[in-house]
Design a protein around this nucleic acid. Structure first.
Lengths: 250, 250
DNA sequence: TCAATAGTGTCTGTCAGACACTATCAC
DNA sequence: GTGATAGTGTCTGACAGACACTATTGA
């Protein structure tokens, strides 16, 4: 098929197009990675090894690698893997932020992701050029604002992520991703209570979860102790990284 | 106060930093602008005047102007004003999109905004360099996918925006922003029905709206006709552009 | 009077939360 | 048996939706 005049005109345009001719903003991807450790909700922070804000605590993140990353999700997953070794978490985009003055290098925008992982599957990467990474606990139940001041506008971003987590927990199965692959309903209820900061009724909690129909009972698998053994459950396969509202009544 | 070694080191870093040294993605802001016209939900589309996708229909949008725009919201508001003349709509960020191949010019990312405006306040900008702009109806009630194929990945983005609109309508006051400043409860109910594609019960609709407590009754203002006159309402001041869930039961 | 739409009242089935109950293990 | 936690059953108040009713205008 011959190349039409229109096509060749477009190709000429693209040939002459050079992104470096324009004033454009910096664009990065940042991550708010939550987990449960020691019965507390915790978030992953890194100490910045480079300017700007060198030595300050920040959310993990970085620039899009236009050679290797095929899309934004890929960038987020790569960053997550680099910091934690985790491959398949719950991951969703939180929101974008961008302004003239959030980064001293100039106009800067970032796509912020929101990840939930089980702390048992994590190996934090240390040493050898890697920025120092720590789990930072978001104080217990009544837990207002995080205490540390973070680099850039990351404190505000963390605040928003927390809000989003709390509001989504009300009607979704998200907290299941904060636990190891196998867990009991009591353990799951405890996670809901940690995030929401208030006790839940056992009976209605179990009713909702069962009706939500996003957990699989693992036949024969039980957690033993000096009490009645507890049935183990797992998140139903195929739901990871997806958007879904199992507890919604809509 | 003397400039510390650390500060001057950072300043030196910033002096040498040049964004044009890096391979970075294109970053733009796009808008999904909804309104109600002729009892149909409609979305604003523009015909592209430049490459790429010249002559194709697309969502309105463009690049961030790093000189004039102080933040992402400002870019979105500016674009909205340029296309429609509207100053104060309901505006929220929908989601970011970015990938290697969504734009033939190279790695491209976009922050997509979601706007609701009253069609009565709009003057579409035509002629003189402006791209042609039209309201495109999203077919009536059962209304599945939009028919036109849009440029870039805009068809998928529009699809997602529609989903988001429909799901938010279930429990928020959003539809009020699709109407003129003053409206009756029956008119508002009609908008909900258009978006959801199903009839609502008058009594429970009115109960919910009144309890939501986001409308102000306009004393003395009534819509007349050859029937009982209807009380006029307005969205409570101070809620515009804000995030809120008046109908939520949480 | 009628036609038309605005606006209210009542009933009922559903369901979430409160709370008490039973079950099953280690010791 | 006891202590501890798992898991279930029952009741009740709140409330959303169905539907019938009343209200108020123009013609």
């Amino acid at each position: 098929m011959a190349v039409s005049k229109k096509d060749s005109e477009e190709q000429e345009f693209l040939r002459q197009y050079n992104i470096h001719d324009y004033d454009i903003p910096l664009t990065s991807v940042d991550l708010v990675i939550f987990t449960i450790r020691d019965n507390l909700l915790q978030v992953l922070l890194v100490k910045r090894g480079d300017h700007p804000y060198k030595g300050k605590w920040a959310l993990p993140g970085g620039f899009i690698d236009v050679q290797r990353d095929t899309n934004l999700d890929a960038t987020a997953l790569r960053k997550l893997r680099e910091k934690t070794g985790v491959e398949a978490p719950y991951l969703e985009q939180l929101q974008g932020f961008g302004s003239k003055d959030r980064d001293p290098r100039g106009w800067s925008s970032t796509f912020v992701y929101f990840a939930l992982i089980s702390s048992e599957t994590v190996e934090l990467r240390h040493g050898a050029g890697a920025d120092e990474a720590v789990w930072y606990p978001l104080e217990g139940q009544n837990a207002q604002k995080p205490v540390v001041k973070l680099a850039f506008d990351h404190s505000a971003i963390l605040e928003l992520a927390l809000q989003r987590l709390r509001s989504k927990v009300e009607y979704t199965s998200l907290p299941a991703y904060l636990l190891p692959a196998e867990f009991t309903l009591s353990e799951l209820q405890q996670v809901y209570e940690i995030i929401l900061g208030r006790p839940l009724d056992k009976s209605s909690f179990r009713k909702r979860i069962k009706e939500g129909d996003f957990l699989d009972e693992l036949p024969g698998r039980q957690r033993l102790g000096s009490n009645r053994p507890a049935q183990l459950f797992a998140v139903r396969a195929g739901l990871a990284s997806a958007s879904f509202n199992p507890l919604s009544r809509a």
